[in-house]
Design a protein around this nucleic acid. Structure first.
Length: 163
DNA sequence: GCCAACGTTGGC
DNA sequence: GCCAACGTTGGC
């Protein structure tokens, strides 16, 4: 299933991912987000990359899950910004998946455009007060965002449920 | 920079 | 286990 990962471009941007080709999504310190990475994200799942606290914020690219979650070693490193004194080797607490670069979108899809787009009103990203940095995205939401990216119209709603 | 919304912490 | 205080997120 598709996902969305938020990142602050000042910290790690789509350009950084394009350069690195793949990266461990380390530094996530929220249990719900960790659980999505640990239990939900499967190798091959597509991932929207979203720039938060950017001007403007929006979806900038696509990645895919390239390796399943494992211990986030940055939690064990006292010199790392994401050090967690409660984490141990036996119980690292935090986990992260590896993602690989797929593509940069031809243009950033601003959050305002997303808000104005029919069919994706229920996207987690667009809900008030939500700040989760790892979010599930439905197949249809993913498809609509990709069509926005390619400048074509979103598909008509399907009747009934997929699969 | 503001501030609403949310998660976490810690006293009790 | 409650909940007030605090810290963080992130759009605006």
């Amino acid at each position: 299933m598709p996902w969305l990962l938020k990142t602050e471009p000042d910290c790690y941007s789509i350009d950084d991912l394009a350069r690195d080709k793949r990266t461990r999504w380390n530094g996530v310190r929220n249990y719900q987000a960790r659980n999505f990475m640990r239990d939900g994200m499967k190798v091959g799942d597509p991932v929207l990359i979203y720039h938060s606290s950017a001007d403007p914020p929006g979806v900038v690219g696509v990645a895919s899950v390239s390796a399943a979650a494992e211990a986030d070693v940055t939690a064990l490193d006292p010199n790392d910004d994401h050090f967690d004194p409660k984490a141990t080797k036996a119980n690292p607490i935090w986990m992260s998946v590896e993602v690989q670069f797929v593509e940069r979108l031809p243009a950033l899809i601003e959050i305002g455009l997303l808000r104005a787009t029919k069919g994706i009103e229920a996207m987690a990203l667009l809900q008030r007060g939500q700040r989760l940095s790892v979010q599930p995205v439905t197949e249809r939401e993913f498809e609509i965002v990709m069509r926005l990216a390619r400048g074509t119209k979103p598909p008509k709603p399907r009747v009934g449920r997929a699969k």
